[in-house]
Design a protein around this nucleic acid. Structure first.
Lengths: 115, 115
DNA sequence: GTAACTGGTTACTAAAAGGTAACTGATTAC
DNA sequence: GTAATCAGTTACCTTTTAGTAACCAGTTAC
């Protein structure tokens, strides 16, 4: 069925443990490598490096090297990446409802969308 | 970071290579183990077995054993699983637009099940 | 001079995921 | 009696992914 190709394309890009975390971290204002690294617990330098490369390739972020003394790079989200917000909203809503459905969790402690 | 938990919950459940393919196959009318297996190229018995267990645990499908001569099991989608259709639609739309954005691909030629 | 910061890379190791094929037990068809 | 179908399970092996830690160059602060 034809839904599968595009869905798989999408999951290939934003699936996995870290990509969405990283994107959200950048959306929240973290621009530099070490900054992003520190903002996401348990994320290692090596993995971050690889994920950022993937994301740049897929045009979700732009990497700029600033000429300065303690060499700085800057990561900024592309306009294109912002189209992911709808997807994330659906994934988020489903996750919340699923949790209720499965665990009967009605607490709804935090459903703000700080993205 | 509150979008992240639910999003990760969702991706844990439907992420990965096979779960959505399997769910769609079942939605399309394939009910039995070998039937589902044969409908998805490159999917092995072992992996299908594991994926179906995960999906049953997450209440996306129901497994019923029919008492008969060449023992048959039946997999049916839950009502709850149908709430995924919105999510899938968004993932699908994003995938299509992303492909256009990145490759300028307007052909939409190949909508067969590539695995 | 020493340590710490920047953005990573490299090498080694450990864990997780996936592939292949054989095998189960009951039954049907030839 | 032989082969095939059903729904899986098990054991073994390979591939992929991830974690750890050391290290690069250049600069700043003490």
């Amino acid at each position: 069925m034809s839904a599968l190709l595009p869905v798989r394309d999408t999951l290939d890009i934003i699936g996995g443990k870290w990509k969405l975390l990283i994107l959200i971290s950048i959306w929240e204002g973290n621009k530099h490598f070490r900054e992003i690294e520190r903002s996401i617990p348990k994320l290692s330098t090596k993995v971050l490096s690889k994920e950022l490369k993937d994301m740049e390739e897929n045009q979700l972020i732009i990497r700029t090297v600033l000429n300065g003394f303690p060499v700085r790079t800057q990561y900024t989200p592309t306009e294109h990446s912002k189209t992911l917000k709808k997807v994330i909203l659906e994934l988020q809503n489903w996750g919340i409802n699923h949790r209720k459905e499965i665990f009967g969790d009605t607490s709804e402690k935090d459903n703000s969308i700080r993205v």
